[in-house]
């Protein structure tokens, strides 16, 4: 059948649903074993963070779209959580092979890593559903939930979100071309503007690398 924008969107939604229908809302046995291998078991903090951020997300979603759509926000968030656990497991498997490491205590107890990964997973779900207004379950298309809305909701710096994107794409082989293109556009937008906001961790990184190179240079103030 000829590909139309609506059909492409439907394919994306169906593809995402295929991936996530079999995924779990909770960490898999494989993930639990990675957690158990950690010096500090991160399981409770991961579950607590998913719940806390979920409450914030649902509240912001309902504020943005309308209280009548709170349940839709909840469903979107849970799809994001399923994708989050699925990609986390895939990432750990590849890191295990790459680094020959089994103890991921530092990474799995890193709050920014988890928030970035979860934000990326939820962004994929939001972009998938946002792509086709008619599929928005009646959501008012005027409400702009597109990127970088998720960064503000989860109080995440754009540069930290940026750091997870490429590994996310590598870890989830079933992302559609549209989804990968969307994440790439996010990357470009972050690098072209969002990462250069005055409170961005990118400036710390630049300073650290300059200090390492022995150049005590001050990052230029951002132009207003």
């Amino acid at each position: 059948l000829p590909q139309t924008p609506v059909r492409a969107a439907m394919n994306t939604i169906q593809q995402l649903m295929m991936i996530l229908n079999s995924a779990s809302d909770k960490p898999s046995d494989n993930l639990i074993s990675y957690f158990n291998n950690c010096t500090v078991n991160p399981k409770e903090s991961i579950l607590a963070r998913v719940e806390n951020l979920g409450n914030i997300f649902k509240e912001k979603f309902a504020e943005a779209v309308g209280q009548g759509c709170a349940e839709i926000g909840s469903q979107r968030y849970m799809l994001g959580v399923r994708l989050y656990y699925r990609v986390m497991e895939s990432m750990l498997k590849s890191e295990e092979e790459r680094l020959s490491v089994h103890n991921f205590s530092k990474l799995l107890n890193n709050n920014i890593f988890h928030t970035s990964l979860l934000a990326c997973a939820v962004e994929v779900v939001m972009a998938t559903y946002g792509r086709n207004a008619s599929q928005n379950d009646g959501i008012n298309t005027e409400t702009n939930l597109s990127f970088p809305w998720i960064l503000n909701v989860l109080d995440l710096k754009a540069f930290d979100f940026y750091k997870v994107i490429e590994s996310f794409i590598k870890a989830e082989a079933n992302l559609t071309r549209e989804m990968i293109k969307h994440l790439e556009r996010c990357e470009h937008r972050i690098m072209e503007s969002l990462a250069w906001q005055s409170d961005s961790p990118l400036f710390d990184l630049i300073k650290q690398s300059k200090d390492r190179e022995g150049q005590a240079d001050q990052p230029e103030p951002t132009c207003t």
Partner: peptide, 21 residues
């Protein structure tokens, strides 16, 4: 995905990016 431009170098992964290597 052939048309995504991978930029991470050899030996760079999620652990290094989040300073957890």
């Amino acid at each position: 995905p052939q048309d995504y431009h991978f930029g991470l170098e050899e030996g760079e992964g999620i652990s290094e990016l989040f300073d957890c290597d």
